[in-house]
Design a binder for these strands. Structure first.
Lengths: 136, 136
DNA sequence: TATTGTTATACTCTATAACTATA
DNA sequence: TATAGTTATAGAGTATAACAATA
């Protein structure tokens, strides 16, 4: 079949992201996490006491959509919320959260390693700067 | 805020794809199309008489999910379905479909041009081959 | 006045199972 | 038996509007 889409970087970008995303989601499900869970746990670990709003801004997740994610992670015993003042709450990992994140981190590092290895060596170093130029 | 995610190509891949996708979706909405509509119209134009199943395989859209897309495009008068045999239907663009696709094509080419221009020159040529290595 | 957290809601995309009819 | 088209349905991600309480 003729495929005029093959010449569009934007199309390949979407397809590559979808393929990688589906693969990582499947691997993370073994640890019981979604991608947004894992990225959120990483940011909380690196920034203990961070607020939900600040996390949402950094991850481009709207405040309203943070609510069910945080509720799920709290129900799973992975994070705690502690009042900072009357309207803000500081997030932190529980011990179980740290353990789960360690597992997730291994899954993700293995995934990233394999992702990079799929790319011909001469293109490898260019991918991250090219991608970052697109969205940052 | 500390951000340990910045070093993961997989994460940047997802963010770049999301950003690009949102941008293109907005521009295509002016023409009245979604991204899946536009890619589907392109493939139909390049392969008149193609079946829904074959399109789905090429675009990685499941048969069941092709139904509402094709219905929408047919209702909008952009494609026609003609029986090939008792169980298959060949798809083709209508005149309006060709006109709309021409508009969409201009939007997409402009979008792709701007996307590439955002990438520093020394990385540009590497993006497409790197992405294709990930998903093809 | 702006921000935080929240509720409610709706739309899109995607995934699965099952069914009918035909090759 | 495998394939084409379809229906129904559920999950996940995302977007908007609105609200109360607080900074």
């Amino acid at each position: 079949m003729k495929d005029p889409l093959t010449s569009f970087p934007g199309y390949s970008l979407r397809r590559a992201a979808n393929a990688a995303s589906a693969e990582l989601a499947q691997r993370l499900s073994v640890v019981g996490l979604r991608q947004s869970d894992a990225s959120l746990l990483m940011l909380v670990e690196a920034n203990p006491g961070v607020t939900a709003s600040a996390l949402g801004r950094r991850l481009d997740i709207q405040r309203a959509n943070m609510v069910p994610i945080l509720k799920r992670l709290e129900d799973a015993g992975l994070i705690t919320r502690a009042p900072i003042d009357g309207k803000s709450q500081g997030l932190a990992l529980t011990e179980a959260g740290r353990r789960t994140l360690t597992e997730a981190f291994q899954v993700i590092e293995q995934f990233e390693r394999e992702l990079i290895e799929r790319i011909p060596a001469e293109h490898r170093a260019h991918l991250l700067p090219a991608l970052d130029a697109i969205w940052r």
